[in-house]
Amino acid sequence: MTKLYFFLILALSLNLSAQDDLLAELEATSLPATEYTFATWKGTKVVNLQTNEMPGEGVLQYTILHRFGAFNQDFVYNFFGLDNAQVRLTLDYSPKEWLNVGLGHTGFLKTYDAFAKYRLTRQSKGEKNMPVSITGFSSVYYANQRFNDGLDRNATTRFSFVNELIIARKFTPNISAQIVPTLVHFNLVETPNDNNTIFALGLAARYKITKMHAITVEYVPQFNGNSYQVPGENGAAPSLEKFSNALSIGMDIETGGHVFQLFVTNAQGVAEPYVFAQNTGSWLEGDLHFGFNISRVFTIKKKK
C-alpha cells in the first residue's frame, strides 16, 4: 500500500513539474554552445596601456588624452599643472568586429602616429573554452619636431614603433586583469650604448566599485631600459639616470557614450614609446601628473 502512495506522489510530482521539464528540454538543446565574455574593461585603454577592448564594428571613436604638469613643478603657479599639459588626440574606427584602425597626434615632439588593433582570441566558455582574450596592438610614430642643432636628419630616424600583445581575463564581473608583453623600437637612440629595442611587460588590473565606476592600476616595467643624461648641479659632471617604469593609478567613470578616465601617473609623454621607454618621471621624487582620457563613440554604420 505504501508503495502505491509512493507511486501516486511520484506521478503527481511529475505532472507538477511538467513546465519545468519543458524548460529543461529547451535548456538542454537550445542554449548557445559558446558564451563569450564581454566588457572586460570599460575603455580601450587602461591609462597608458591598451586594453583588449575596441569599439564595435562600424563605430568611430574620438579620444582626448591629457597629462598635466607635475606636482613638483611649481604646481599652483602653473594652475595645478594645467599650463604645461601634454595633449594627445586620436580618431579610430572599427571596419570589422575584430579590427580597429586609427590616427593620433601627440604634442610631445609633435608626434603623428597610425595604429591598428586586432582581436586574436576572445575569452569564452562552453563548447569553445578560452581562458583569455588576446589582442594585438601595433603602431608607428613619426616625431615631427624641428631640430635647431643644424644636423641633417633623414626621415627614417624620426620613426618609432610599439607592439603590444594584450592578454586579458575577466575573472569576475568586477575584477579584470591583463599582462601585456610590449616591444618598443626607436630607429634612433641617443648614444651607441642605448638599446634600439626595449622589452617591457605591462601589468594592469581593475576593480569595479559600482556599475559605472572602476578603480584601475597599471605598471609597465622595462627589462632593458635605457638611461638619460642629467645635467650636474653647480658645475658637477652630468650623471646618467635610468628611464622610469610607468606606474599609474586611476578611476574609470562611464556615462553612456563616454568613458572618463581620471588618474595619477608618472609618465607625461602620452604617446606609447615615450611613456614606456623614455619616461623621466619618478613616483618617489614626486614627478606625478594628473591626467585624463576621455572617449566618445559615434555609431557610423548601424547594426541593422
Binding site: 524548460l23 529547451l26 564581454f38 569599439p55 564595435g56 564594428e57 555609431t299 547594426k303
Partner: peptide, 15 residues
C-alpha cells in the same frame, strides 16, 4: 516554456 539568451538581444548601437 520560453528560453531567452540575454546576450542575443541585438541593438542598433554596439555600446
Amino acid at each position: 516554456a520560453f528560453l531567452v539568451p540575454i546576450k542575443a538581444f541585438q541593438f542598433e548601437k554596439a555600446l
